[in-house]
Simulated assay, not measured.
Amino acid sequence: MATSLLAQPRQAGSGRYTWWGFDVYQASLWVEPGFDAAALARQRYALDLQYLRNFKGRDIAQRSIDEMRRVGPFSEAQARNWLGAMERLFPDVSSGDRLTGVHLPGRGAQFYANGKPRGEIADPEFARLFFGIWLSEQTSAPQLRLTLLGQSPTAR
């Protein structure tokens, strides 16, 4: 699994994302010793999503762009570039499949599908906004954010 890229990985938290009553995925955040949620940009961590439904990779990429807009502004040129990169990296998924992103501080993000490398987007601003979908205060799923960061009584 992609968590092998982390030194002494431990699970900070895990939670289920549900949209309009449908279970979408189980998310888990894996971190290294000394992880500090207040300093996400400077840390290596892995976000693992185990899908509970089938989705097209291009739909995952488009939804990611939509959610990244909640986190912070970016240009249409960046949106086109990032969308194209994600469409190439994100495969179609079936229930049980895993997509994992590893945050590389100052560099960008590496992606894995079912533990196999898919590629990297070498852009720290992309990584900040992408992982912000789950981990920023502007997330559309604030309870899941708290659970992933281990800051909620429902953290598992």
Score class of each variant (00 low, 15 high):
A2M: 11
S4N: 11
S4I: 15
L5A: 09
S14Y: 05
S14A: 15
G15K: 14
G15V: 15
R16F: 02
Y17F: 07
Y17R: 07
Y17K: 01
T18W: 02
W19L: 13
G21V: 02
F22P: 06
F22E: 06
D23Q: 05
V24T: 01
V24L: 15
V24S: 05
Y25A: 12
Y25T: 14
A27R: 06
S28R: 12
S28N: 07
S28V: 00
W30D: 12
W30A: 13
W30S: 13
P33K: 08
G34H: 02
F35L: 03
A37L: 03
A41M: 05
Q43F: 00
A46D: 09
L47T: 11
D48V: 05
Q50N: 02
Y51W: 12
Y51G: 03
L52Q: 07
N54F: 04
N54H: 11
F55C: 00
I65K: 07
E67R: 13
E67K: 07
R69C: 10
R69Y: 09
R70T: 03
V71A: 04
G72H: 06
P73W: 08
F74Q: 11
S75G: 12
A79D: 06
R80P: 01
G84T: 12
A85Q: 15
A85V: 09
E87R: 11
E87Q: 13
P91N: 09
P91V: 08
D92R: 02
V93T: 10
V93G: 01
V93L: 03
S94W: 00
S94M: 14
S95P: 15
D97F: 14
D97S: 06
T100Q: 11
T100R: 03
V102Q: 09
V102A: 07
L104M: 08
L104Y: 08
P105M: 06
P105R: 04
G106L: 02
F111H: 11
Y112K: 08
N114E: 00
G115H: 01
K116T: 13
P117N: 04
I121Q: 10
I121L: 11
A122W: 00
F126K: 03
A127D: 00
R128N: 12
L129V: 00
F130Q: 13
F131G: 08
G132E: 01
L135N: 05
L135P: 13
E137I: 04
Q138M: 02
Q138R: 15
T139F: 09
T139A: 07
T139S: 15
S140R: 06
Q143M: 08
R145D: 10
R145E: 06
R145H: 04
T147L: 13
